[in-house]
Design a protein around this nucleic acid. Structure first.
Length: 899
DNA sequence: GTCATCGACTCAGAAATCTTGAT
DNA sequence: GATCAAGATTTCTGAGTCGATGA
């Protein structure tokens, strides 16, 4: 694991160091340099240290003594912490300000800002340099080296960065407006509002239909999503608990009564049939069922290249497999002699894989009735676990199934990936249930680990997994009231940040030039968290994948630009789930300078922000707003971006979206959604079939263009004078030379003939099947041969056309006129356009996952507002589950709602 | 008082399953 | 209306965040 590199940099930033870095940084725009990036020579900012060496709040020297700096030379991890884990600064500020209404606190904050020379115009500088990325969703893949970086994402991120300038300006204006409005309110009311901010409930409209469409129409008539909403269910919905209409100010108590039926254990292991064996060194071996089960874990996933192709996965599996073998008496050959399994490469799981594949295939190919029966049986077994009673209400349980044993699939280079996840026994499971409620029975012959009655938590059952010692929980479904309330509070907190964002931004811009290293690092980190939506970046252990977030970035994860592209930083690191973040962004000159300073005296594997960690950062953020953490910025920026994108759509009076068709409305929504997904770096792996699917679409386009080409030739036959029409002939030649090459036409002709043959053959076979079923004689083979001559004729005709299209493409319909031909060409044009739009959309979504942002980051009320404003049925953008999850938003939001 | 560890929760992409639409 | 592939949705469980806890 790389060293933390903590405390390697100086505690204070000397003027000499600043000047040295100044000489090193590439020449930038003079105006920009003058724009609020001066070194604060006149304001001596220091880390004040308490007499006993305890860290003190950072204050201007004019107000506090400048003392020993030694503490700043001490790595963070070695430093003494602060009161109750909260740095003194936060404590001090909250001491002095916690009791003051936020609106009043703001006044003092503004006063502080006045003393600085800093201008906030830095925030107006676009994050990335303007790029000639005219097409937001390029169809052609960039030829750059970063083959696994989402190209579309990268290009779109650039355009998003340009928009961010306006988005931030709007945020600034909004924050000021909110505070101005609150200032006008009577003081008593203001205090009350701020105190209960977290508890404000969305207002439900009197007659809102919880699950209906946004515009009040009946739910969509198609699809399963709506099919399973029976009248009975609707009736139940009417009696449903609308928590958003009630006040509940107690955060610690999650429920009063709770009853449930426990958890569902996976079925016992079914040993393989006797003839299905693991092979070692070419010979079949017999294993104890326990070892066979483990071999089966690996054998059944041979097609999962991402796992079995990973040497760590294989090594860990083999290690655990050998342990199980030892414990169970090892492997034996056909004669019952012991086989020493010591070389992974000699293991052959093919037979096991084939067995499980055949099993999967058999399941897939069951008849509809069989599938239905199996599902009914499964549903019946699960029924009692599906719901629980919480405070007398029926609520859905989420993951009531105990995770089955298998191989741990750690993402990326997780050091434990491939290890055996053991079967969870009832003796490991703790049940949480209401006092006096009937405790669910453990499986026969077993006991629960414990039964507790803790109403301050939301889980129903828990156990520890054996790989990382992590706790697993059975919790309520996302559609439950508990999760809904929690979701609502999350978005309200993000909305609360809206009021403070301008001064937070001003403050960190100011701190970017602080003389105190820790402040300057924190400000730079905040800049990244705010502008790039980076995650906080907790410290990670040796036994986890090496992934980072903002605070844990190392020098090796950033590259500062050279003179050609001043003030650009390239980020290249693995984030959550080992998803690569690779992007070059433009930063302000001051941020660039800071990074240069932070790099001094460090190695690539050292921490960039060696004086910062997530608790310190979050403690600082809490000083602005109760409950503010780095994570809130992601929610805020995602929702704010979405809301601004929708405002842009609204502002487009030339092309009113309200009048557009449903498809265009969905596209517009997805386009905005995509911007949020790009901001949050939500990626997905490119589907295996993506390239072939794109090729198919491309072929379809060419096919249609070929049809146009033929029609144009027919037009020449109908009206030979067209040959003198320059524009007509140019179109025709262009189609031939630039779109349809000779080679392509030749191949297409072959495809057409082949297609015709297949069609004839299939029709023939089908007719024969029918005849046989009716007990009649099948058609003779000679009949098929006769019919196939039609394909031969087509082949001859196409060959002639290929040789001399002008002469041999004949008018197919005697009634054809120039006008009819033109109509046909226009129709083909429309169809081509539709396919091309589909291709652009498909390519744009190739590596970007829209779901995560829709599910977790975009305030659902923005979506509901969008649907109501532009008259789009909500089910077009929210699936059934999302409609259930966000019932509170659907029920309480109108078209004028604003984030 | 400090700080590593733990507990409880949210967020995340892959895989599994279901639905839709073209042929 | 049967079949099949593509697309949409749901499920699963690993990976984060962040506050609390206790040595």
């Amino acid at each position: 694991m790389p060293s933390t590199g903590r405390g390697k940099g100086p505690a204070m930033i000397s003027k000499a160091l600043e000047q040295k870095v100044d000489r090193e940084v590439p020449d930038g725009d003079e105006d920009q340099a003058a724009d609020g990036i001066a070194v604060l020579d006149d304001v001596d900012m220091v880390d004040a240290v308490a007499p006993r060496g305890q860290r003190r709040a950072r204050k201007p020297a004019v107000k506090e003594d400048t003392t020993d700096e030694s503490d700043d030379d001490v790595p963070l991890t070695k430093r003494r912490k602060t009161v109750n884990g909260t740095p003194k600064k936060a404590v001090k500020e909250s001491d002095s300000e916690d009791d003051i209404p936020l609106t009043k606190r703001r006044t003092s904050a503004v006063k502080k800002e006045v003393v600085t020379q800093h201008s906030d115009s830095d925030s107006d500088v676009p994050l990335t340099k303007k790029r000639a990325a005219t097409n937001k969703r390029p169809l052609v893949k960039d030829e750059s080296d970063d083959s696994d970086v989402p190209i579309a994402a990268s290009a779109a991120r650039k355009s998003l960065a340009k928009e961010k300038k306006d988005i931030e300006k709007a945020a600034d204006v909004t924050a000021k407006k909110i505070r101005a409005a609150e200032k006008k309110k009577p003081a008593a009311k203001r205090v009350k509002k701020e105190e209960s901010e977290d508890e404000v409930k969305p207002k439900a409209k009197p007659k809102a239909k919880a699950n209906g469409t946004a515009n009040g129409t009946k739910k969509g008539a198609k699809g399963k999503a709506v099919k399973d909403e029976s009248p009975q269910e609707e009736e139940e919905e009417d009696e449903e608990y609308k928590w958003w209409l009630e006040q509940n100010n107690d955060n610690s108590v999650k429920w009063t009564t709770l009853s449930h039926n426990g958890v569902l254990f996976p079925p016992e292991y079914e040993p393989l049939p006797k003839h299905v064996k693991l092979y070692y060194d070419g010979k079949p071996v017999t294993l104890h069922p326990k070892a066979e089960e483990v071999a089966g874990f690996f054998g059944s996933m041979l097609n999962s290249e991402v796992n079995v192709g990973n040497p760590i996965f294989c090594a860990n599996f083999f290690d655990d497999f050998q342990t199980v073998l030892k414990e169970t008496g090892g492997a034996k050959d056909a004669d019952g002699k012991k086989v020493n399994i010591k070389d992974f490469k000699k293991l052959d799981f093919t037979k096991i894989f084939e067995y499980y594949e055949a099993d999967r295939e058999a399941k897939r190919s069951r008849s509809a009735a069989e599938k239905k029966a199996a599902k009914a049986e499964k549903d019946a077994a699960e029924e009692k676990y599906l719901t629980c009673k919480l405070d007398g209400r029926t609520e859905k349980v989420g993951n009531f199934r105990v995770e089955p044993p298998g191989l741990f699939r750690g993402r990326g280079q997780h050091p434990k990936t491939g290890r055996v996840k053991q079967r969870v026994m009832p003796e490991q499971v703790t049940i949480n249930i209401g006092k006096g409620e009937k405790v669910p029975s453990p499986p026969p012959g077993h006991n629960w680990a414990k039964v507790i009655h803790d109403n301050t938590v939301t889980w129903l059952a828990t156990w520890k997994e054996n790989i990382n010692g992590n706790t697993k929980y059975v919790m309520l479904a996302a559609t439950s009231s508990l999760k809904g309330m929690s979701d609502f509070k999350k978005f309200e907190k993000a909305r609360e940040l809206k009021k403070h964002i301008d001064r937070i931004r001003k403050d960190y811009q100011k701190d970017l030039v602080s003389k105190v290293m820790v402040d300057r690092q924190r400000a730079t980190a905040m800049y990244f968290i705010d502008k790039l939506a980076l995650r906080a970046g907790n410290e990670k252990g040796e036994d986890e994948a090496d992934t980072v977030g903002c605070c844990s970035l190392r020098l090796e994860h950033i590259t500062l630009s050279t003179t050609e592209e001043p003030f650009h930083v390239t980020f290249d690191f693995l984030g959550k789930d080992s998803i690569r973040y690779h992007d070059t962004v433009e930063v302000t000159e001051q941020v660039y300078k800071n990074l240069k300073i932070f790099e001094k005296r460090k190695s690539p594997e050292d921490q960039l922000f060696d004086r910062l960690n997530t608790p310190t950062l979050n403690a600082h953020l809490r000083s602005y707003m109760p409950g503010l953490t780095a994570k809130v910025f992601r929610t805020y920026n995602a929702s704010w971006t979405m809301a601004q994108e929708i405002k842009l759509l609204e502002a487009d009076k030339k092309n009113p979206l309200k009048k557009a068709n449903v498809h265009e409305k969905i596209l517009a929504y997805n386009e905005a959604n995509r911007k949020v997904a790009i901001l949050c770096n939500h990626q997905r792996t490119v589907g295996k079939a993506h390239d072939t699917q794109m090729e198919k679409l491309e072929y379809k386009v060419k096919e249609k263009k070929y049809k146009q080409y033929r029609i144009k030739h027919m037009m020449l036959k109908i009206n030979p004078k067209l040959e003198k029409d320059k524009s007509f002939m140019a179109d025709l030649n262009n189609l031939y030379k630039n779109v349809l090459t000779e080679k392509w036409i030749e191949q297409h002709h072959k495809d057409l003939v082949e297609g015709e043959k297949v069609k004839i053959q299939k029709k023939f076979e089908k007719e024969n099947e029918k005849l046989e079923a009716d007990g009649e004689k099948p058609l003779k083979d000679s009949e098929l041969e006769d019919r196939l001559t039609a394909a031969d004729d087509l082949e001859k005709q196409l060959a002639k056309e290929f040789k001399d299209p002008k002469k041999n493409i004949a008018v197919e319909n005697a009634n054809s006129t120039i006008e009819k031909c033109e109509n046909n060409i226009a129709k083909l044009d429309e169809s081509i356009q539709a396919i091309e739009t589909q291709m652009i959309d498909k390519e744009a979504n190739k590596t970007i996952a829209l779901g995560t942002s829709k599910l977790n980051y975009i305030d659902p009320r923005i979506t509901v507002m969008f649907c109501k404003k532009f008259e789009l049925p909500i089910e077009k953008v929210f699936s059934k589950t999302l409609r259930d999850k966000f019932k509170w938003a659907i029920d309480s939001t109108d078209e004028n709602w604003d984030f």
